[in-house]
Design a protein around this nucleic acid. Structure first.
Lengths: 350, 350
DNA sequence: TTGAAAGCGCTACCAG
DNA sequence: CTGGTAGCGCTTTCAA
C-alpha cells in the first residue's frame, strides 16, 4: 500500500503548523499516483472505474479538499473576479455588487471586493487586487486612468462601470442625458423655470452627464441656464449643508440633485428651516433608492443590479478569450415622478 | 549579466498564453539570484543597497509584479478573508460588509464575498470559499451547522454573525431581548395592548430572540401574549402580503415587525386598504435603515458597520495565532421612536 | 489506464 | 550579503 514516495524528492517536511491533507496523501492512501488522483478529481474519463472508487474512498476518508492555491497556480487562473468601488456605503452600490456577485457565482467565480475610500494607496490596492483575479470591474472615479491602463496592459480584462471609457476596456453605464432631459421637461411642464443643479460634475462621469443634459434641456427650452452647478458630495449631509446658502441666495423653483441622498438630505434641512417641499421649492433626485419611495421623491431609476450583472458577463466573455472590439453598453433609465417635484403630480407612492 | 539559469532545471517552457514577468526574469535582468530579488521585494535588510538598486531598476524596467498566487502558496496564507451572506440585497447587509471590508483592507487582507441565495449548493460554495481564505465570517442562517463545523475543524477561523453559537467559533451579534422589551414597554406606555409580531422565529436567531423578548415583556406586563408569530420573510413584499389577513382577522393595536422592510411594506399595503398608521394600527420595525427615517418608522437601531468591523478584528486575532477561548460579543441596540408607533410620540424625523 | 516528473511563481533554509 | 535549491499543492505532458 505505502509505496510511492520519498523516491526522488528527498522529503524534508518543514515544521508546518497544521499540515493539511494534500493530494499526495490521498494518492498514497489509495495506492495510486497523484496524477491519477488529479484526474479523478477533475472527472477525467481516463480513470478506471475501480480506481476511481478507491480514490473517492480515500478522499472521503481523509476529508481531503484540493487546495485552490495549488490548483490556481498550476492552471494559471484564479477563478475569481474583482470589483472596485469608491465607497461601499449607501444603498446604491450594494445592488450593483449583488448583480455582479450573482452572475459571477453562477459562472463559478469568486468575487473580491475593494473600497478605495479615497485612500492615498488606492492605486496600489487596486493593482494588488488585479493580481488576484482573472478580471476586474472598476466603478467610477476610484483610481487614476493610468492604473487602469496598467492593469489592461498587464493583460487582465477590465470593465469600467459608470466611468469614462479607457482604451482597451469594456464599459457599462446608465443613460444620463436623456434622463436629465426628461426630468427637466417634466419640471418645465409643471411650470418650474428657475432651476438649480446640486452635485459636482467634476466628481464623476455620471454627474457630468446629468449636468450637461440638464443644461442642454434648459437651453433647448429657451429657459435660463445656471452658470454653475452647486458642488456637493453624494451623502445626505452634503445635501443638508447647502440648504442655508440656497435660502440665502434666494430659492430657485427647483433643485435637481445628482443623487437621492443629496436630495433627501436637502429636503430635510429645508424643512428644518421651515421651507416646504414641494410647496416652496421642488426637489428631484437620482437612483431611486428605497428611501426615495417613502420620501415621495421624484427621481430617475437606474438598473443597478443589471449593471453589475452585465459587467460580470462582459468580463466572463473576455476571460473566456473573446478578443473582439471593446463593448460599451448603455443601460436605459426611467423617470419616476412622485410628489417632491411639484403640485400637479398625482402619484403618491411607488 | 546573463548567467544564472538553465542550471539544473532543464527549462522547457510550456507554450504559455501571455507569459508574465516572473521573479526569475528580474533576477536574470539584475544579475542576481531569485533569492535576492525575493529579499529585496520583502524589504529585507539583508540586501546591499547597491544590489537593491539594481533589483529595483530591473523591476521597474520589466514592470514586474509579484504573483500573489506564488507568494500565497509559498507562504501558506491567502491574505484574504471571506464573508458569507444569505442574500446581499437590502440596505442591511451592505453596511456590515462595509465595516468588514474597511478593517480587512486596513489589515492588508482582501475580502471575498459570497451570497448563498438559498441555493442547494450553498454548502459546497462556502466550503470552496473556505479554501480560498485565511478566515471566514458567516452571517445568519446561510448554511448548515455541519458545514461551519467542518470549516472550523479544517482549521480555518470562523466568526459567526447574528447566528447561534457553534463550538470553536467566535461570534458577534446584536442585542435583541432587551431591545424587544423596550419596544414593548414603549408601546404599552402609549396605551397599546393587543400586539402582534410579524416575522418567522424559525428563520433566524435574531428573529427568534426578538420574538422571545416580545413575549417576555408582554407576559411581564400581564398583557395578552399572542400564541404565535405571523410568519413572514424579510422583504417589503412579505410585509405587504399579510396586510389582508391581518385586517380580516381584526387589527391588533400594533404590529411589531422583525425588520424595517417588513414594517414598511406592511404600512404601504395597509394604506392601500385605507388603514392608517399609526391612527388605526401602530407599526414598528427593526434595523433603522435609511428609508425608516423618511417613513417615520419607529424601530431599533443596530450597529451594522460595527458588527462587520468587529468580525474582521476577531478573525484577524485568530489568524494571528490567538488560541484563547472563543469570544461572543453582543453589541447594544437602541430604540428609535418615530411617529409610526402611536400618537404621543413627538419625534418626527431622525 | 497509469505513473513519473516537470513545472506554475515565490519564499526561506542552508551554505558560503 | 548572496546564491542554490527544496519545497508550497496541483495539473499536465510524455512514456510506458
Amino acid at each position: 500500500m505505502d509505496s510511492a514516495e520519498q523516491k526522488s524528492t528527498g522529503q524534508r517536511r518543514r515544521t508546518s503548523a497544521r499540515a493539511s491533507v494534500t493530494i499526495r496523501d490521498v494518492a498514497r492512501h489509495a495506492g495510486v499516483s497523484v496524477a491519477t488522483v488529479s484526474r479523478a478529481l477533475r472527472g477525467s474519463d481516463l480513470v478506471h472505474p475501480a480506481t476511481r472508487e478507491r480514490v473517492d474512498a480515500a478522499i472521503e476518508e481523509l476529508r481531503f479538499t484540493p487546495s485552490q492555491l495549488g490548483r490556481s497556480l498550476a492552471e494559471r487562473r484564479h477563478a475569481a473576479n474583482g470589483i472596485v468601488f469608491p465607497d461601499l456605503s449607501g444603498p446604491f452600490y450594494a445592488e450593483v455588487v449583488l448583480g455582479y456577485e450573482e452572475v459571477a457565482a453562477t459562472l463559478g467565480r469568486s468575487v473580491l471586493i475593494l473600497s478605495t475610500h479615497n485612500r492615498e494607496s488606492a492605486g496600489d490596492m487596486v493593482l494588488d487586487l488585479a493580481g488576484r483575479v482573472d478580471g476586474l470591474a472598476v466603478f467610477g472615479r476610484t483610481v487614476h486612468d493610468d492604473v487602469v491602463a496598467e492593469i489592461v496592459q498587464r493583460g487582465v480584462p477590465v470593465v469600467l462601470m459608470a466611468r469614462t471609457e479607457i482604451e482597451g476596456a469594456d464599459s457599462v453605464r446608465t443613460e444620463n442625458v436623456v434622463a436629465a432631459t426628461s426630468v427637466v421637461d417634466h419640471l418645465l411642464a409643471d411650470g418650474h423655470r428657475r432651476m438649480a443643479f446640486l452635485g459636482d460634475p467634476v466628481d464623476s462621469t455620471d454627474v457630468a452627464e446629468r449636468w450637461a443634459g440638464f443644461r442642454g434641456a434648459l437651453a433647448q427650452a429657451g429657459v435660463d441656464v445656471p452658470e454653475r452647478a452647486i458642488p456637493a458630495g453624494f451623502k445626505e449631509d452634503d445635501g443638508a449643508r447647502v440648504a442655508a446658502a440656497l435660502i440665502a441666495d434666494g430659492l430657485p423653483d427647483v433643485v435637481v440633485c445628482a443623487n437621492d441622498e443629496l436630495a433627501l438630505g436637502l429636503t430635510v434641512a429645508l424643512a428644518e428651516e421651515g421651507i416646504e417641499v414641494p410647496g416652496e421649492v421642488a426637489v428631484t433626485g437620482w437612483d431611486d433608492v428605497m428611501a426615495a419611495r417613502y420620501a415621495g421623491l421624484t427621481t430617475v431609476r437606474q438598473p443597478m443590479r443589471e449593471m453589475g450583472a452585465r459587467a460580470a458577463q462582459m468580463l466572463d466573455a473576455r476571460i473566456s478569450g473573446d478578443r473582439s472590439e471593446p463593448r460599451h453598453d448603455v443601460l436605459t433609465t426611467q423617470l419616476v415622478v412622485r410628489r417632491s417635484c411639484g403640485p400637479h403630480s398625482k402619484e403618491a407612492h411607488r
